[in-house]
Design a protein around this nucleic acid. Structure first.
Length: 779
DNA sequence: ATTGAGCGG
């Protein structure tokens, strides 16, 4: 059963040129010249490697045909209905996307296949994989198929033959009404070759031809009804990955990467998944990474993320909307061909970053297709998650080990402590880097199979960190109190006041010493009479040493957690009263942002621990001004639900209508009670099924690194590490692994940790019942 | 316990 939609997803001007270019590139390629993508081979598989070498003419023909086609290669597993993977330009992305989107076949059957250096048992496991099994899974509708994995497996099977493992490939060419589809049945290898051809073809033109980036991908995940809510994040992740590869492939275009075409290509085909021995990234690789990161950054700066789109919105709707504020160069609307609708988000690329800035200024909540949306900058993640660390290790041990692996660019390590057991960690840490390039380089290095952090029989897990949350800028802009960690314990209130009075008029000082509740006694609060003084204090004090010479202590200062005082927060009608309810993604970082470095932020105070607000003269000054918070409050952007949703929540998009409306007492998802403003702290957070909005983009220019919450509802998405190198540490094969926190668990976790202890249960007056706004009960 | 600790009123 063919279910593919026939509409043409793309319609970019200049596409023809790109196509021509691709064709030309493809023409130059001979099948023989195509380096085998060399799916990582296990020892067992190596015996069958020969199969890869053989080139058959029918295949070549199919390859040629596909390469000629301007875009889509849809792979359908023979005899299986339903499953299709349709990928549009850039073709090179196909494999990556498929891999990224699909979850591996059940039970870890495939789990090891891209992890050549796994244990003996693993190899055996993967050797047992049969295509039929995969097909069964497909037919059962249990999951989508990771065709790249399938292909790899096919190649490993001793008896792989063209006959046996045919795969339907749908080639779509043309555009608009002239779109033409052809089905061709070819063998699995040919599919791979097609992919390879495609990927080589695109390398000629990525940045030069923006339209080739006008990709849209669709996957028919039969086990998911409505994926839209999680798609944004994963798609961006995937986009990034693709982009990374794409840039990598075009390394030759970058000044410092002087690879020959063949090499570049080979390199590119190896992709992220390659797992060569070798302990360090070589210099060239480093350079490449840094180059692509630069290019990436530039590209990212030229675009914005648009979320909360009406599902029926089309590229043109976006274009029209944003043309008002800048020259729109490209609209990448992510679509779901299964439903023939968009996925609710898009990336809009502008001519330059000034236009981006303007858009961010003026189009905070654009009305597109009649629906209020939200926008955010598109940014990078500089934080790595490192798991599987022996829990007795100290931060220093981690740091040393990282050095052993040649990673010395870490700017900060947050080794998460085990609160129960003094001195032990919870076995994971966050590594902060100065930039995405550094993080990426480290990521690559840590991917290698020799990376072990003391955990017996376990390689470390590496991934990009999930975003932390940031409080509403408007709210933070009113905080007058500074939380200071590392106050000399012998200071009393007066001494503290004396020490900080230079920053502004101090209303009051509260020391932990005098708090019965405080576990530590080395922190305190300095309450100024105005926000500016608090900010000044934070910047002045942070990372300086305090003390009278007896014992100096390095202090860390942050704006204190805002006190959720009703409307106070609202500062009029516009504003972010939903403290702790927003979903601004923030990656904590050290030593950046604030002049003297910065304490790692966390969920900005709405986590069991109150956070340090990472904003300020944010992020290298790219967008922020110190006054941002004050002068330019960003309206909220409430989007989809973040975390899991209890039954039914996820089933439809209708409940999301008006999700971005706020402050008017209406427009919230129908199944969700209107937010009482502080109910977010109280009732709301106590009620775990109502999670935070993941797509809150409060203008995002502050610490927002990624406008998503990454928490997954189900396990059909693989995070980077998994895509690249599945591990065997997934205790529950059916769950997709422990990293996929289930919705309720997640919800509960967040509810408790973020908001529970401090705010939970408190009853604050409802916004809807509310007191008049204004005032601002912040300290 | 493989996605973050530390915050009063």
């Amino acid at each position: 059963m063919r279910t593919r939609k026939t509409d043409s997803p793309k319609s970019g001007p200049g596409k023809k040129a790109a196509q021509a270019k691709k064709e030309a590139a493809a023409a130059e390629k001979t099948p023989e010249a195509t380096p085998k993508s060399a799916p990582k081979s296990t020892p067992k598989a190596s015996g069958t490697k020969a199969a890869r070498g053989k080139q058959s003419t029918p295949k070549a023909a199919a390859v040629a045909e596909a390469a000629e086609a301007n875009v889509v290669v849809a792979a359908v597993i023979t005899d299986s209905e339903v499953i299709e993977n349709t990928v549009e330009v850039p073709e090179k992305s196909l494999e990556k996307r498929v891999r990224a989107k699909a979850k591996p076949p059940q039970g870890g059957k495939v789990a090891g296949m891209s992890t050549p250096k796994e244990t003996e048992t693993t190899e055996e496991t993967s050797a047992k994989i049969k295509v039929e099994e995969i097909k069964e899974d497909v037919e059962e509708g249990l999951q989508s198929v990771d065709t790249s994995i399938l292909q790899e497996e096919l190649l490993k099977l001793e008896d792989t033959s063209d006959k046996k493992y045919e795969t339907d490939v749908m080639v779509v060419s043309g555009e608009g009404p002239e779109i033409e589809e052809k089905n061709a049945t070819i063998d699995a290898e040919a599919v791979i070759e097609i992919k390879q051809e495609s990927s080589t073809a695109i390398k000629d033109a990525p940045e030069a031809n923006p339209e080739v980036n006008n990709e849209t991908v669709t996957f028919r995940d039969v086990d998911v009804k409505d994926e839209s809510e999680k798609d944004a994040f994963e798609d961006q992740q995937i986009e990034e990955e693709i982009e990374r590869d794409s840039l990598k492939e075009t390394g030759a275009e970058f000044p410092s990467a002087e690879k020959g075409e063949g090499e570049v290509e080979g390199e590119g085909l190896e992709g992220v998944g390659d797992e060569e021995e070798g302990s360090k990234l070589d210099a060239e690789e480093q350079i490449q990474i840094s180059d692509m990161a630069k290019a990436r950054k530039i590209k990212k700066e030229q675009e914005i993320f648009v979320g909360g789109l009406d599902r029926d919105a089309v590229e043109d709707d976006l274009r029209k909307a944003f043309e008002k504020v800048g020259e729109v160069v490209e609209v990448r609307l992510h679509k779901d061909y299964a439903t023939n609708k968009n996925k609710g988000f898009a990336f809009v690329k502008f001519a330059n970053k000034e236009h981006v800035a303007r858009a961010l200024e003026q189009m905070k909540n654009p009305l597109i297709r009649g629906k209020r949306c939200g926008i955010a900058p598109s940014e990078d993640n500089d934080t790595l998650f490192l798991g599987n660390i022996c829990n007795t290790w100290t931060k220093d041990a981690v740091k040393r080990k990282l050095r052993d692996y040649g990673i010395d660019s870490v700017e900060g390590i947050t080794l998460v402590a085990d609160t129960q057991n003094e001195g032990l960690s919870r076995g994971f840490a966050f590594l902060e880097f100065a930039c995405h390039a550094d993080a990426m380089a480290a990521y690559k290095r840590l991917q290698k199979p020799d990376v072990i952090f003391g955990h017996p029989e376990r390689t470390a897990k590496v991934a990009f960190g999930e975003p932390l949350r940031e409080p509403d800028p408007e709210v933070m802009a009113q905080v007058k109190s500074v939380f200071i960690d590392g106050l000399p314990p012998y200071w009393d209130e007066d001494q503290v006041k004396e020490h900080f009075k230079s920053y502004g008029e101090i209303e009051r000082v509260v020391l932990a010493r005098n708090m019965s509740t405080a576990k530590r006694k080395d922190f305190g609060f300095v309450n100024f009479t105005n926000h500016e003084a608090a900010v000044t204090c934070v910047e002045g004090v942070n990372d300086t040493e305090l003390g009278d010479g007896k014992s100096k202590m390095k202090a860390r200062a942050r704006l204190a957690n805002p006190l959720p005082k009703t409307q106070a927060v609202k500062g009029g009608m516009s504003g972010g009263f939903r403290i702790g309810h927003n979903g601004i993604g923030v990656y904590s970082r050290f030593g950046r942002g604030f002049g003297r470095g910065r304490f790692p932020s966390n969920r900005a105070g709405f986590q069991g621990g109150r956070g340090f607000y990472p904003r300020g003269r944010g992020r290298g000054g790219r967008f922020s001004h110190a006054s941002d918070d004050v002068e330019m409050p960003y309206p909220e952007f409430h989007g989809w639900r973040p975390y899991g949703v209890r039954g039914g929540r996820r089933g439809s998009t209708s409940g999301r209508v008006g999700a971005f409306d706020r402050g008017h007492g209406r427009g919230f998802p129908s199944r969700r009670p209107p937010y009482p403003s502080e109910g977010d702290f109280g009732g709301h957070f106590g009620t775990t099924q109502f999670g935070e909005d993941p797509y809150y983009y409060g203008g995002g220019r502050g610490g927002l690194k990624r406008p998503f919450s990454v928490i997954e509802q189900d396990s059909s998405y693989l995070e980077p590490t998994n895509r690249i190198r599945p591990r065997y540490d997934l205790p529950d094969p059916l769950s997709g692994g422990p990293r996929y926190r289930d919705s309720l668990g997640t919800s509960a976790l967040y509810s408790r940790d973020y908001y529970g202890s401090d705010y939970g249960g408190s009853s604050y007056s409802s916004f809807y019942g509310g007191e008049p706004s204004g005032g601002g009960y912040y300290y």
